[in-house]
Design a binder for these strands. Structure first.
Length: 471
RNA sequence: GCUCCCUUCGUCUAGUGGUUAGGACACUGGCCUCUCACGCCGGUAACAGGGGUUCGAGUCCCCUAGGGAGCGCCA
């Protein structure tokens, strides 16, 4: 049977990084084995499932580029099928009706907890014949003896005793099927060969295997991948910063960077850190995934992101950067070529958001010089160099990097100063800050008019400062 | 509490009985240099603890400690 994996999120929120990694692993496993990857939306919880969540998940999957071959399937559209299976189990006496009131179950649980036992259903209705007309739920009749052995591709062999398992509800009193039943039916119907999911499902596995066996079906192979923790090692949550995949896009992370980061969480291939999607498909092996949970480290994600920004085509970086410029109220069309700006800033930004921030000055005058930079570079000693530079720049016919660079060299030489003594004040004057691309490139991209205007402003700033100190 | 599981630098990891325990991020020293960054060279830093098995243990076994997940008419 050819490989088929699935990603089965429940649409009760956004796609978070843990889900994204599980999806990636499933996708890679399918691709590696030339199989299919199915997307299934587990929306049987009518209360919590929302259309917004479904859209958010689909959008995130698209952004990441994890295309599915089949689906998306919606469980809410398969209730007839689930009921068919439940009826079959009922007929074969592999399931039974239960009308235990909630109060009884609560009392039962409390008693068990008090006796330090594992809380579970006691099988009260197992041999009762409750009429279908009465309000009831349906429970699966779990075997009470023997063991379930799961040969997990990540965890290895896990053994569960049936006497630890109770009779789980497979149909609620409102007639809707529950998770453990729907998963089993779907995975079986859809021909899923490899179930790759978060390890919070490990304890559900023996129940599902038992249902599968009751139905006479062969269980799929399982692989339970460990969870992702926050920077501090505790469970990942909003307080750790971004957890939603789309939030990373908003923060200027490239999809290939996030994918590369996620694939290295719990998986590795020797000393290699960087993988293209093709390389991942070739090298990834689900059985190589680690068993232990790993902490999400934003610093490393940023490093990988910078790597991909650096090695991307400037045109692509510009295209991705554009909306972030827009977020700053800047229209990239009304200024220097964004592709050139992107080319110059590629090595200087860890995210597209950062790139937009450090590139804003190319497109608009800043209100104030960065205080620290101004204090250090826009002082009396810079007056003469700046005046000379301004004069020479104004006299220039053209406005190309080479000539601009020569101006800086000439002024440095004529004043017997290091280039830095000229370039830095000039940089602060033109960029408003002490860091920018090479001074020639910076001047060229900012443009003649803006440069002269800003140098004048800087000269005024320095003069004002001198006056203040004099008084 | 019970069941299942996890444990190598701060973090992600390599390691399948014999290694000076390797790499990466971060941190840090230096080089490059008009700034920042990039790049290059170097440094600090780990086998949770205790017992075994073995000539030899990060690697195998047991115990302890710490951590996690699950124990729903959620998924």
């Amino acid at each position: 049977m050819s490989t088929k994996t699935r990603f089965a999120p429940s649409p009760t929120g956004y796609l978070h990084v843990g889900g994204a990694r599980t999806a990636l692993f499933s996708w890679l496993h399918a691709r590696k084995h030339g199989g299919k990857y199915v997307l299934r939306i587990e929306d049987t919880d009518l209360q919590r499932s929302t259309a917004e969540s479904i859209n958010a998940i689909l959008e995130a999957m698209t952004w990441l580029g994890l295309e599915y071959d089949e689906g998306p399937f919606y469980q809410t559209k398969r209730f007839d099928r689930y009921n068919e299976v439940i009826d079959e189990l009922l007929e074969k006496n592999l399931a039974y009706r239960c009308n235990c009131p909630k109060e009884r179950l609560e009392t039962l649980r409390e008693g068990q907890m008090a006796r330090k036992e594992k809380p579970r259903y006691d099988g009260h209705c197992r041999s009762l014949s409750i009429e279908a007309t009465e309000p009831h739920v349906i429970r699966f009749r779990n075997p009470d003896e023997g063991t379930v052995v799961v040969d997990d591709q990540v965890r290895g062999k896990i053994v569960f005793s049936n006497n630890e398992l109770d009779d789980l509800i497979i149909r609620r009193s409102d007639g809707s099927p529950t998770y453990n039943l729907t998963v089993v039916v779907d995975d079986s119907d859809m021909g899923i060969t490899d179930v790759i999911r978060g390890d919070d499902h490990v304890n559900n596995t023996p129940r599902q295997v038992n249902i599968l066996k009751a139905l006479g079906k062969e269980p799929p192979r399982y692989a339970h991948v460990p969870m992702i923790l926050g920077d501090d090692g505790s469970r990942l949550s909003k307080r750790h910063g971004a957890v939603s995949v789309m939030e990373y896009r908003n923060q200027g992370i490239l999809p290939e960077a996030l994918l590369n980061y996620l694939v290295r969480l719990g998986w590795s291939h020797g000393d290699e850190e960087l993988f293209t999607l093709d390389q991942m498909v070739e090298l990834f092996a689900i059985e190589d995934v680690n068993k232990a949970a790993s902490a999400f480290n934003t610093e490393k994600l940023l490093w990988i992101n910078q790597h991909y920004i650096k090695q991307s085509e400037p045109a692509r970086v510009a295209r991705l950067l554009s909306p972030h410029m827009g977020d700053l109220g800047i229209d990239p069309a009304a200024g220097p070529d964004l592709v050139e700006v992107a080319r110059q800033q590629q090595e200087r930004a860890k995210t597209l958001v950062e790139m937009a921030e450090i590139s804003a000055f190319f497109y608009r005058d800043f209100d104030e010089f960065e205080p620290k930079a101004a204090k250090k570079h826009l002082k009396a000693a810079a007056l003469e160099p700046l005046q000379q530079v301004r004069q020479k720049l104004a006299a220039l016919d053209g406005w190309v990097g080479e000539e601009l660079h020569q101006v800086v060299i000439d002024v440095s030489a004529s004043l017997s100063l290091n280039m830095g003594k000229v370039a830095q004040p000039l940089r602060v004057a033109v960029a408003g800050r002490a860091a920018s691309p090479g001074i020639d490139v910076t001047l060229e991209l900012v443009g003649r008019e803006a440069c002269l205007r800003r140098i004048d402003k800087a000269l005024a700033y320095i003069n004002h400062r001198i006056e203040e100190q004099a008084s």
